[in-house]
Each structure stands twice: as structure tokens, then as C-alpha cells.
């Protein structure tokens, strides 16, 4: 009925509360509206920032990344209702673990691949030297 988990520690009164329609739904509707409007603002600002911004590329990249992450957190809390649950907050724990795994996976892959690129790709000087040595044979 409601994004709250693990009721073994909750009393039956709490369970009845979960079934009672009014209180929960008002907050939920408010949640969805906040999530929707917030996401709309963040999406549009990311779009107009990237279209209109002239200046440092890296600064813009960081700005866009921050906006995306903010929207991710916003939707996690207001659309997916992470954290709105009884302890132990299993959903929140799973989400945190996912973020950890994804960070290691993506961060590690990019680290390895870009460092590989730097190490394996010869510099122009090295290439010219190599080509000259081939010609002289």
C-alpha cells in the first residue's frame, strides 16, 4: 500500500495506520508534485545551461554532472520513496550498496581504460622517429 518495509517490529496499530487512506496519501501526492516540478526545473536548467553557456568546457561538465546527480537524488526520494520506511531501512541500504558497486565499476573501468590509452598510444614524436627508422632501411 505504501512504501514502508519490514513491519515485523511494527505493531498492528502501525499496520492499521498504513491501511488508513487519508494521512499517507496527502503526503504522497505532495511528494510526487515536488519530485515532478523539481525534476522539470533541473532538466530545463541543464538543457539551457548546455545550449547557452560559452566558456570553460570542464566547468560546464561539472555543472551538468551536479544537476544530473541532484535530479537522481530528488527522484530517488520523491518518486521511488527511498528512505521513507521503517528501520531497518533495507531499501536504502540496497540503494547505497548499488551506488558503491556502480562507482567502483564505472570509476574503475574509466580509470583503467584512460590510463591504458595514455600508456599504449605512442606520442607523435615517437611515431615520427619510428617511421624514419623504417624508411632508412
Amino acid at each position: 500500500m505504501n512504501p514502508k518495509y519490514h513491519l515485523s517490529s511494527a505493531s498492528s496499530q502501525e499496520a492499521d495506520m498504513l491501511h488508513s487512506p487519508q494521512a499517507q496519501h496527502l503526503t504522497s501526492l505532495k511528494h510526487y508534485v515536488i519530485g515532478f516540478i523539481g525534476s522539470l526545473i533541473l532538466t530545463l536548467s541543464a538543457y539551457f545551461l548546455s545550449v547557452n553557456y560559452v566558456g570553460n568546457h570542464n566547468l560546464l561538465l561539472i555543472g551538468l554532472a551536479i544537476l544530473a546527480f541532484a535530479q537522481f537524488i530528488l527522484q530517488l526520494f520523491y518518486f521511488l520513496h527511498v528512505g521513507h520506511e521503517f528501520p531497518p531501512r533495507l531499501k536504502l541500504m540496497l540503494t547505497c550498496f548499488m551506488i558503491l558497486v556502480v562507482t567502483i565499476l564505472v570509476g574503475g573501468s574509466l580509470w583503467i581504460m584512460f590510463s591504458l590509452n595514455n600508456r599504449v598510444m605512442p606520442s607523435t614524436q615517437q611515431m615520427v622517429k619510428y617511421m624514419n627508422s623504417q624508411n632508412s632501411l
Binding site: 500500500m1 514502508k4 518495509y5 519490514h6 513491519l7 515485523s8 511494527a10 498492528s12 499496520a15 492499521d16 498504513l18 491501511h19 533495507l90 531499501k91 540496497l94 540503494t95 550498496f97 548499488m98 558497486v101 556502480v102 565499476l105
Partner: peptide, 27 residues
């Protein structure tokens, strides 16, 4: 009331399992 609580808990466990699938999909 106890039965309701049990049913609710079953539902919540199932939804939590689905959440676990979503997290693997994230990976």
C-alpha cells in the same frame, strides 16, 4: 489484524525483492 500485518509484510518482502532486481539492473 495479525493476518493483515502478515500479508502486508509478505507484500513488502516481494516489493523489496523487486527493488533488488532493479539495483542489479542499475549495474
Amino acid at each position: 489484524s495479525k493476518r493483515q500485518t502478515e500479508q502486508l509484510e509478505q507484500t513488502n518482502t516481494a516489493v523489496l525483492g523487486f527493488w533488488l532486481y532493479l539495483m542489479t539492473d542499475c549495474v
